[in-house]
Each structure stands twice: as structure tokens, then as C-alpha cells.
Computed example of a mutant assay.
Amino acid sequence: MIPPVPHIVLTGATGQIAPLMVRHLPAHHRVTLTSRTPSPGVDRPGVRHVTCDYDVCESLVAAFRDADALFVVTNDPTRPEHDRNVVRAAVEAGVGHIVKLSAAAVLDDGAHDLVTEWQRRNEERIRASGIPWTMVRPRSFMSHALGWAPDIRGHDSTYALHPHSRNACIAPEDVAEVSARLLGDSGHYFRSYQLTGPQALSAHEQSAVLAEVLGRPLVCRELSPEEARRRHSRRYSEAMADALLVSAERQLAGAKSRTTDTVERITGRPATTFAQWALDHRDRFA
């Protein structure tokens, strides 16, 4: 008898991690990518995209139906009903395993900002669902540096609040590979993994790396809290801007500098350095 083809569902199809995960899943797996908006798609046989209404649980149930494993990305702390619907749909659809993209800050007793508390509630909801779970808790993504690209192109500058505070940021590609390896593997059921890069770097140090990669000098300029808030408010709600400022203060206090070897333990290779990541994405800054 031919065994059934595993069905993997990845939420967040228009985000960073889910599309990167596809390349690390076995070619014979049936993969469904879901998102709230249409996706440009992933060029691989056996992959389909489903646009879901996260306000309607039934829309998610149809996409999750009989999934052997579900990768959960939730990205709006102001819409907690979406998170509730995802878990409810996973239960109704008979999902076999949930891998949740959470955040390293949930382990920090001093972190009580909007985003961290939201992720804690999401984790609690999944643990209470009765479905086997695995939590993936990364530090900040190295790709946040792409927010500097316009300033680098236009002014040879980067900007940061507390530019000498350090964060053990991680390459999104590493998060994707680790998450793909966890999906459906019972050896990882009911476990949580904190993911970091191989070293903690400050914005000043990241800027020096980018200057070397780009072959021209860059200046890292310090923002005041008011300037940082204005920059955040261009992209996020006021509540999110406040949460990011509070998070920056924890970073200044050293809360984000610890590194782990989780990427190497799970993938068998060292975690990507910021220099490697910057070189791979050089064209996006040039």
C-alpha cells in the first residue's frame, strides 16, 4: 500500500518565512500556502496558494483540512480574533501538529510590551488546543536592516535608537530551515526552541559590516526617542510604535544579547552570520 502524501500548510504566504520554508520541505510533500491577500506564488510542483478570510473560521478550516502539520504565523496584535480563529480552525480541521512562530522575548520576565504579551497569549492558546505543538522563538530578523536601504542609497547613513546596544539577530533563512525541519516530527512535539544568530551585534556594528560589503563608508546616526517614534509610526500603529520603543530599552539593558546554538543543533550547520546575510542581499542595499 502506498503511504499517503504528507500535507503541510504554511500560513503567512506573503511574509518572509513561509516562502523560504518551501525550499526545505521534501519534494513529495503536498504544500498549501495561505494568506489574507493574494500571493505571487511559489514556483514548485505540488504547492498551491489559498487566500483566506481570517475573520471567518470556516475559511481557514477549508484550507487546513487534514493537514499533517501547520506552520502558524500571526502578525497583527491588534486583531487577536485572527489568532483565535487559526487555532479553532486547526482543531476543527484535524491538524496533526502545530509549529508556531513566536518570539524570544516571551522568555524575558521583564518584557510586557504589546507584542510580547500577545505572543504569550498565542502560545497559551495553542498549548491548550490539544494538538501537539512546537514553539519557534527567534530573535529579531537580520532583514530588519533592509529598512536602512533608502537612507544608505540616499545619504550613506543608517539610523538607530541606542546604536551601540546589541541584538543576537538571526537570518530569516535560518528560521525557515529550522521550522521546516520541525514540521510533523514527533521528536519535537511539546518543545520550544529559541533561535539566535551566532553573535550579538549593534546597529553601529551592522552598519560597519554593510559598509564593507558595499565598499563605501556609512555613518550610523543616533535617533532620539521622538525621532524613532516618528519613523516607526510611518509603518506601524501607535500601539506598535510604543511597543518597539519599549523593546529598544530592553535591548539597551542587554536583554537581547544572549546567543544559542539551536540552528546548528537542528540543521547541522552554523547559523548564518550578519556578514554572510548582508553579502547575500547586497543588491537590495546597492
Rank of each mutant, 00 (worst) to 15 (best):
I2E: 15
I2K: 15
P3Y: 08
P4D: 12
P6L: 07
G12V: 10
Q16N: 09
L20I: 04
L25D: 14
A27D: 15
H29Q: 13
T34G: 07
G41I: 14
G41Y: 14
G41L: 14
V47G: 06
R48K: 12
T51E: 15
T51G: 10
T51L: 09
V56K: 12
V61D: 02
A63I: 04
F64Q: 00
F64W: 03
R65C: 05
D68P: 03
V73L: 13
V73M: 13
N75R: 12
P77L: 11
R79W: 07
D83G: 15
N85A: 03
V87R: 07
V95K: 15
H97P: 01
I98Q: 05
S102N: 12
A104Q: 11
A111D: 15
V115L: 07
R120S: 06
N122H: 12
E123M: 10
A128P: 13
I131F: 10
F141R: 02
F141K: 06
F141E: 05
P163E: 08
N167T: 09
I170A: 03
I170S: 03
R181Y: 02
L182R: 05
L183I: 01
G184C: 08
S192C: 06
Y193C: 05
Q194H: 00
P198K: 01
P198Y: 04
Q199Y: 04
Q199G: 00
Q199D: 07
S202Q: 07
Q206V: 01
Q206L: 02
S207K: 00
A211F: 06
P217D: 04
P217I: 12
R221E: 14
L223F: 12
E226S: 13
R230G: 03
H232W: 15
H232I: 03
H232V: 02
S237A: 04
E238T: 08
A239M: 06
A241H: 09
L245K: 06
G254W: 05
T260E: 12
I266P: 00
A271Q: 00
A271C: 04
R282S: 10
D283E: 15
F285A: 06
